[in-house]
Amino acid sequence: MAWTRDDVAARAARELQDGFYVNLGIGIPTLVANHIPEGMHVTLQSENGMLGMGPFPYEGEEDADLINAGKQTITELDSSSYFSSADSFAMIRGGHIALSILGGMQVSEKGDLANWMVPGKMVKGMGGAMDLVAGVKRVVVVMDHCEKSGAPKLLKACSLPLTGAGVVDLLITELGVFEINRGKTPVRLVELAPGVTVDEITAKTEAAFEVAL
């Protein structure tokens, strides 16, 4: 039984620590907010220019001037602050954000991340992802272990254009958890999802990794 999307989000939430300023990407990373442990104080940054993101609004209380980086309506908290995008990325680039949890298309054993472009197919842009991986102290990637075709996504080298080189600290897939350590040490498989074997992961992974369960 591999992990569900929600299980992966819950596992990623275990990377949070009390007092952290955190930036969550779009998709599964957004779900991490649902798993912040009771009593832990985590401040969510939205890179369009807000600290202290609150929950989604009740129907009828949406405010067009208050959205997150995924362009969803959100709410503010008593502790929230607003600022320009330049200030927002000064926080990010300046190393003031403790943790970023992002989605990925490919991760390499060197710690490279590709998550913004498929040449000839997907032309959307990198948004704030390149700044986040360049500036945030710890970068956690959550992604499916393989493509829909079955092709591995944890690779020796990314084939897609990079978002950042040597930037990934930890990778969480539905099959397990890998310490990437920005490519400074060999990749280590540190956790397995329930019912998943090392053999299964080996078969579905191109990158070399050590088993350290």
Partner: peptide, 8 residues
Amino acid sequence: RIERVTTR
């Protein structure tokens, strides 16, 4: 206009 109305 709001791009993605999201509520709880």
